[in-house]
Design a protein around this nucleic acid. Sequence first.
DNA 1: CGATACTGCGTATTAGGTACGCAGCGAGCA
DNA 2: TGCTCGCTGCGTACCTAATACGCAGTATCG
Lengths: 227, 227
Amino acid sequence: MDSEALLWGEVSTPRRGPKPLLNRGRIVRAGIDIADADGLDALSMQRVAGRLGAATMSLYRHVPGKAELVALMLDAAIGQPPRLSGDTGWRTALADWARGNRDVFVGHPWTLPLVTGARTMGPNELAWTEAALRVASGTGLPTAALLDVLLLLNGYVRGAAVGLAGGPTVPGPETLLRFGLLDRYPVLAGVLDRAGTPQGPVSQDARFEFGLARVLDGIGMYVRAHG
Amino acid sequence: MDSEALLWGEVSTPRRGPKPLLNRGRIVRAGIDIADADGLDALSMQRVAGRLGAATMSLYRHVPGKAELVALMLDAAIGQPPRLSGDTGWRTALADWARGNRDVFVGHPWTLPLVTGARTMGPNELAWTEAALRVASGTGLPTAALLDVLLLLNGYVRGAAVGLAGGPTVPGPETLLRFGLLDRYPVLAGVLDRAGTPQGPVSQDARFEFGLARVLDGIGMYVRAHG
DNA sequence: CGATACTGCGTATTAGGTACGCAGCGAGCA
DNA sequence: TGCTCGCTGCGTACCTAATACGCAGTATCG
């Protein structure tokens, strides 16, 4: 069973034999709990099994392997998209979609590296896509442009979520001083001097909203010109 | 030696003993070659050593471990930022920066999952940041807003690069039909019907430019209002 | 009341990261 | 000139983790 069939296929319930102690849902949830708590590196089949009180090899009755388990975890963690009212206009709805999407990534930071690779979208991820396209179609833009808008918004949310979820960090002050980095990176030095480190938790939410507003402004300009 | 000291520290050349056959640079380059060719999963210490004609354990004389090797590979793959002329205006320069940044990710797709995690920026990545901030300061925006602009642009580029580098794919037509997905995702079905799959290689570059133009439009609106 | 389709899981194999220590080398010094 | 000691390369060994395979027990169906 390839990953696509796995994500989209039904889970068959057996008619004979002992009642299953494990099932795909429990395994996936246990995996998500581990990844949420300790990151993707801490996810091992042994640890998932241990958390469920089962033997490692028992998992293989329900998921073909670790890669497929991770794919299932990803779609489950993404979850259902929020219900977006069509009455408030496309801008408000797209903003809500973006915030909901961001919350998924911030709540499950281990999903971020996973969504960068080649893969088939699962049911939930596709539902998010559907929701965004439905809202974006309210702009009146031609169908082909809707995918452009989607890549733009989706791209921004994911990229920004990296920053929110504790991505890159400027070297510590001692390193900056020791290697004379303030001289090599003068503009950055000036910005840091005034604004503190760029990942101050307080300002990051405002920073996301700033970028989101600019993105929606840019879309709005295009809509007015081509809608 | 932690990862930060590793990235920023000097490479010491020995004064005594045999001439080193290996050095950090060769190891890092070999690792990049492997990752470029076969992806990050294919990177193993044995394979790096094999490509260099050395024994596995010899690598550990020059890099503390695999994690640190990957960190070094990341900064080396990012490379130096392009020279951006200040004469063409901030919009052109920021667009060039974004395209150069995108090219790095598309040329080394294995970097994408790496930049999503918590880490200290290396010299090259910091140089890109410096370059973007320098250009952005040409908008006349207050210093604090420059970081907002950076997160916006950086976020968009990274997120969009995921799509360009072969990220998510809609399930194949047989799956779509088999599970009646065209009924569950009607808007998507309509869009796909007209536009083909969202990752057609021809349109992806235009799609990146579309989003980039919207982002810069949004920044421009803000600059006119607050610059 | 078998036959059979199942589940749980013990065992064993393979791959890969890395700690440790030894053998040889060669620049600097006596 | 020859010793010394800071080095490099790397063989060996150990540990973690994924997973193929097959057996033993179980519950349903004929």
